[in-house]
Every structure is written in structure tokens, then in C-alpha cells.
Amino acid sequence: ETIMEVNLLKGPKGLGFSIAGGIGNQHIPGDNSIYITKIIEGGAAQKDGRLQIGDRLLAVNNTNLQDVRHEEAVASLKNTSDMVYLKVAKP
């Protein structure tokens, strides 16, 4: 597993990826991690090219996303300014 830091500039459609996982909404049984499950065509993440489906999202800005509820992860992604710092684990 490789840890990678990505600074992503939000586009008109936001960050351009979808997530799944978290406490109460496990993407993988027994694993509370938050995973990237979709990269949106023409979105910021696709244009940047570094994020991939299956990457594990560890942090957004200063918010640690390990062992959080799905709703908390979504809220932390929404409550960001235009430049967003992401910390991901690549499988």
C-alpha cells in the first residue's frame, strides 16, 4: 500500500468522485475505511489523473477519515474550499 497526498482544485461539478464505506455502511465487510468507488467523467479527479477507483481515502484537509461514519466523510468533502488536500492509500 502506498500513501499519496493529492491537492485537487474543485471544478464546477465539485471534486468529481464518489465514495462508499464508513461505520454502518461498510464497502468491504469488516472494514470501516472510505473508498473511492467512482471517478466522474470530465470531473476534477479524472482531469488530475492520480485518484483511482479502489483508493482508500485517509484524510480530507485536516480531517482524519479512519473509523468515521459515511455521513461524516461526505460532510468533510462538502465543507471544503476550492483547493482540497486529500491523503489516499493506493492498493
Results as ranks from 00 to 15, higher is better:
45 A>Q: 00
80 T>L: 14
19 I>P: 01
32 N>P: 07
60 V>L: 10
20 A>E: 14
62 N>S: 14
15 L>M: 13
86 L>I: 04
84 V>P: 02
37 T>R: 07
7 N>Y: 05
16 G>F: 00
71 E>K: 04
1 E>W: 02
46 Q>Y: 10
11 G>M: 11
16 G>K: 01
53 I>T: 07
29 P>S: 14
10 K>F: 06
70 H>A: 07
21 G>I: 02
15 L>V: 05
18 S>D: 15
33 S>E: 07
56 R>H: 06
80 T>F: 12
27 H>L: 05
69 R>I: 08
3 I>Q: 04
27 H>W: 07
7 N>W: 04
56 R>N: 03
59 A>K: 15
43 G>P: 00
31 D>R: 06
63 T>G: 07
91 P>T: 11
35 Y>E: 01
37 T>W: 05
65 L>C: 09
45 A>M: 05
40 I>T: 11
41 E>D: 15
48 D>S: 09
75 A>W: 06
25 N>I: 07
32 N>T: 13
38 K>H: 12
6 V>T: 05
24 G>D: 10
39 I>W: 03
70 H>D: 05
57 L>H: 00
59 A>V: 13
20 A>W: 11
85 Y>A: 15
39 I>A: 01
48 D>L: 04
15 L>T: 08
68 V>S: 06
48 D>I: 02
64 N>T: 10
80 T>Q: 12
52 Q>H: 15
46 Q>V: 13
64 N>P: 15
45 A>P: 01
23 I>G: 06
79 N>D: 15
58 L>C: 07
56 R>Q: 15
69 R>V: 12
14 G>S: 05
45 A>T: 09
61 N>S: 07
91 P>W: 06
23 I>Q: 04
17 F>K: 00
72 E>D: 05
73 A>N: 00
16 G>W: 00
84 V>C: 09
57 L>N: 00
45 A>V: 11
26 Q>M: 09
44 A>C: 11
16 G>I: 00
78 K>Y: 11
18 S>N: 07
27 H>I: 03
83 M>V: 13
63 T>E: 14
68 V>C: 15
53 I>H: 06
11 G>A: 08
27 H>E: 11
91 P>Q: 15
84 V>G: 02
86 L>S: 01
15 L>Y: 02
48 D>R: 01
28 I>M: 13
10 K>C: 06
68 V>K: 15
74 V>C: 13
41 E>S: 12
89 A>M: 13
78 K>N: 15
62 N>H: 15
68 V>P: 04
37 T>S: 12
34 I>E: 01
85 Y>I: 08
77 L>K: 00
21 G>M: 02
88 V>P: 00
77 L>W: 02
3 I>Y: 06
27 H>T: 09
27 H>N: 10
44 A>G: 09
74 V>W: 10
52 Q>T: 09
33 S>P: 03
19 I>Q: 01
57 L>V: 11
60 V>A: 07
14 G>V: 02
19 I>V: 14
48 D>N: 05
15 L>F: 03
89 A>I: 10
78 K>E: 10
1 E>F: 15
58 L>G: 01
31 D>Y: 03
29 P>H: 12
4 M>R: 05
3 I>R: 03
12 P>H: 05
16 G>R: 01
81 S>Y: 07
19 I>H: 03
50 R>C: 06
10 K>E: 05
50 R>T: 14
39 I>S: 01
22 G>P: 02
71 E>G: 09
83 M>I: 10
22 G>H: 03
75 A>D: 13
40 I>A: 13
54 G>T: 03
69 R>L: 13
47 K>C: 04
20 A>H: 07
7 N>D: 13
9 L>T: 13
12 P>N: 10
43 G>M: 11
67 D>V: 09
70 H>V: 06
11 G>K: 08
23 I>N: 08
49 G>H: 07
7 N>T: 07
72 E>N: 07
84 V>S: 06
4 M>N: 08
6 V>Y: 13
25 N>A: 11
69 R>H: 07
73 A>K: 00
75 A>Q: 11
16 G>A: 02
7 N>Q: 10
48 D>V: 03
28 I>E: 10
55 D>T: 11
2 T>W: 04
35 Y>S: 02
13 K>H: 08
88 V>Q: 00
51 L>Y: 00
85 Y>Q: 11
38 K>M: 11
35 Y>D: 00
50 R>S: 12
86 L>E: 01
